[in-house]
Design a protein around this nucleic acid. Structure first.
Lengths: 230, 230
DNA sequence: ACTTTGCAGTGTAAAAATTACACAAAATAG
DNA sequence: CTATTTTGTGTAATTTTTACACTGCAAAGT
């Protein structure tokens, strides 16, 4: 049955949420893509997403989709743009509210769901469905801006991480290189890291200190109007 | 007639655009509000906005509303957030895509339209309709972040302005005070200002140099990967 | 057990940016 | 002509950023 029973006096667009899921493998930024099983763009890769329910906010919708696609709950998400070109979906007028999620990549199993899902390094992302190439570009742009004001990067790292991993992450996000010593100095200067007693044993080479993000110190800092300059 | 002739298989929310219009009077940031003539929230002030047409993007819709409400065309606008609480509009489910516009206040006539429209200084904004108080807070937050990366402030000033006005503007947006000499030094250092031959005659006190924003220099700077640190 | 290899930890000196700070010149009002 | 207000301007002290090289640890190979 193709019964159309939801009627309005004026035309309404459909509204979806899409979620650019960023992960970090220790060296490179990755995004989680799902392969479309149906037309349009059947077989193409795209960001997970879906139609918004009438009793949920966009944020709730994005979190629900995230849960459905990856099993993740309570991930860090942030809305970054609504894409609304009248022809962005060939089926009907669809506006999508786009979010990005920052997840700990180890917590997400790639590709053994019903839909094929897989992680792609940023420079190996294939051509995407709909306007998702543009969505990815914008997501990256916003993440890059965001990281200057908030220490969102830690969402992408495991609880315990080495200074090297942290540096790799910043370099990957901002696409720059830092001097190792200056990076360490600067990071420690913020006073938002706790140096743990543990190290990275076993390791093939010299062991490294592990750190964890100190949310409390950061909250204090933020209250003092501090700005994370990176 | 209350004929509902636009029908869909699944429920669709209504979509509007709202526009927070910022202006600058030389001292304080202002926003343009319109007083609602109909329920709900009849008599309350709100940001101009309206329903999105099916053949326009959100940006086009926001620009159209801006034109309809203020007569302004080609203003600087930027989308900053979609507000989607299921109960934000008592009539039906309405999602609004919110923009802010930066306009030269002299170019906009306040309040002699059909709708009453008026400028309000930021600290004199009355309680607003719908969730527009939240929309204003978010708009400000985004403008404040934005001004660290792009010289958007010039959109709020006349073509020719004094260093004092520019400083007032930055102070108003960021809610901080700068040292007059250091501010001048820093601004001139960016090399995006052209010092004009003219001054502010007549003036009650000593005349001041006029400057204009130099878009070309800025473009060059941006190409070199420069970041406007303010 | 000794050597090699690779990565981790660490400090200092130079350069650049930021801050703090004061006086003289222009214009008007009285 | 005096008082008042606002503008233009420079320098020294401090802080931040940058550039840069050696030693220690652990495992693997000999």
């Amino acid at each position: 049955m193709d019964e159309k029973k939801f009627c309005y006096k004026y035309p309404h667009p459909a509204v979806t949420t899409d979620c650019v899921i960023f992960g970090f493998d220790g060296t490179r930024l990755q995004v989680l893509l799902v392969q479309r099983g149906i037309e349009p763009y059947k077989g193409r890769w795209a960001f997970p997403g879906g139609f918004l329910k009438m009793d949920e906010s966009c944020e709730q919708g994005a979190l629900r989709e995230l849960q459905e696609e990856t099993g993740l709950t309570g991930a860090y998400i942030e809305q970054f743009h609504a894409f609304s070109d009248p022809n962005r979906d060939p089926r009907e007028r669809v506006i999508t509210i786009a979010y990005y999620a920052l997840v700990k990549i180890q917590q997400v199993q790639g590709g053994d769901d019903a839909d094929r899902a897989d992680w792609f390094a940023l420079d190996e992302v294939p051509p995407l469905a709909f306007d998702h190439d543009m969505i990815l570009r914008e997501a990256l742009k916003r993440l890059r801006e965001r990281i200057h004001f908030e220490p969102v990067g830690f969402e992408l790292l495991p609880e315990k991480f080495t200074m090297k991993q942290l540096q790799n992450l910043y370099e990957a996000i901002l696409d720059v290189r830092f001097d190792r010593r200056n990076f360490t100095k600067k990071m420690l200067h913020f006073n938002i890291l706790t140096q743990l007693d543990e190290t990275t044993r076993p390791t093939p080479k010299r062991e490294a200190f592990l750190y964890s993000f100190n949310q409390e110190s950061y909250n204090e800092l933020k209250q003092k109007g501090f700005r994370l300059e990176f």
